[in-house]
Design a protein around this nucleic acid. Structure first.
Lengths: 232, 232
DNA sequence: CGCCTGATTGATAAGTATCAAGGTCGGTGG
DNA sequence: CCACCGACCTTGATACTTATCAATCAGGCG
């Protein structure tokens, strides 16, 4: 929230188009259409740790991640923080919030990051000309809802160890076996504490499922199938 | 899942229209349009305890609750069961799942209940003629997503006692101060055990927030403002 | 070299689930 | 009408999971 942590940058159209092309909301659109959207988009760079928007802010823009890692999270009144999604190239930060008035999560750059920012009105005007977009947003939002139902069942029904394993599995499927995450970030993603996450990782290391060779701020999965079939 | 637990019934058009009229997905439509939808809808009656659909089933129909209470829930592999929503007159059972292939929750009649059932294809054909519906579904789904994010933050960040209180508050806002819920049902809704839910209720009774005068299978909230401002 | 951040491990305590044992209500059948 | 039965509610004792607190260690950077 300190100032001077974001700045508008000029991206060439190719880079913008790549991000839009990878964005599932626009799947089915032709490049000619995406160029129109690219013309509406401003690219903005954020330094590591900067907030792109905050939970509760009015949703003025539609955002697509272009470069870097962006954490979508929310804090509780008791001070705990839950990470719901880690966005990368082509992921939307707030597709669902656009239908409501305000953001309901905060978006924070985990690394230096660049996003495309499209004004709300321009986005909806574009959407009105391309009806498939609404269906795509709806499908993605429904998928998101399903993911969160499953997460809740997991949190309530399974023990922490399994939850951490599930979190790792989800992350590996998206990012590959070399995760650029601190222990604390994994813990927030799994909904537990740093120490507990570490204890689980230690156990997994002893079983040969993860290795910590790569040093601080990283987690390396060395045996994906064992991870997938994990039983405590 | 036993047979003979549901049967098609004839509802007069007025009853169908009432349910559709109260359904937020159709807000903005004129009665003349709703008649078209009513003509597509079959009313089906389910006895208490019967399943209307199961988690994982293909989503062939769109459902709107017409009468009775219907629980939308999901079980974990460890046998726990989480209730996500309790639907009544005008609530949709599966608006989000219609965008995907399968149901991701189970729907079960908590009381004898009647639903309107509209074939998937007919629903989408109707939707195509009334673009506002897509926006309504999207808004409702986005709201649902927000609710679940908040629930997760609650589960991870707050202690059970507060969670039960929040659950009661949500339920009271929908159903009024006389809740027709068994202790076990409240527990499933709050994501805890029956015994823990009972202990919290006992505490609330001592504080004069709930009274148990109405007997079994009911919870009566006697002081809503104390409930709202509850601190453990 | 010393500092700061992150990782790790151990000890302890708190919160909840689990297990166990009645208790109460309402309905049913004799 | 009464007794019984089953479903639900309630409370207590205990165990287990996980958070919390505390101490130490390891590596990168100024």
């Amino acid at each position: 929230m300190r100032s001077g942590r974001s700045r508008i940058v000029e991206l060439d159209e190719g880079a913008k188009l790549e991000a839009l092309h990878k964005c599932r909301i626009f799947s089915g659109l032709r490049t000619a259409d995406l160029r129109v959207m690219a013309a509406l988009a401003t690219s903005v760079h954020y330094v590591k740790g900067a907030f792109i928007f905050n939970d509760g802010d009015p949703a003025e823009f539609f955002y697509v991640a272009q470069q870097g890692l962006i954490k979508l999270h929310k804090g509780s009144s008791s001070g705990k923080n839950v990470t719901f999604k880690i966005a990368t190239l082509g992921d939307t930060l707030n597709a669902a919030a656009l239908s409501l008035k305000s953001h309901f999560l905060s978006a924070q750059a985990m690394t230096d990051a660049t996003v495309l920012r499209i004004p709300r009105k321009g986005f909806w005007a574009f959407e009105a000309k391309h009806p498939g977009i609404a269906a795509n947003i709806l499908r993605l939002t429904a998928e998101g809802l399903n993911i969160e139902y499953n997460r809740i069942v997991d949190i309530i029904g399974e023990e922490v160890e399994l939850r951490v394993v599930h979190s790792l599995f989800t992350l590996v499927n998206k990012f590959g076996p070399n995760l650029l995450l601190k222990r604390e970030e994994l813990a927030n993603y799994a909904g537990t504490t740093t120490e507990t996450a570490i204890r689980v990782l230690s156990k997994l290391r002893k079983k040969g499922i993860v290795s910590c060779s790569a040093g601080r701020g990283t987690i390396v999965i060395s045996d994906l199938s064992k991870l997938q079939n994990y039983r405590s």
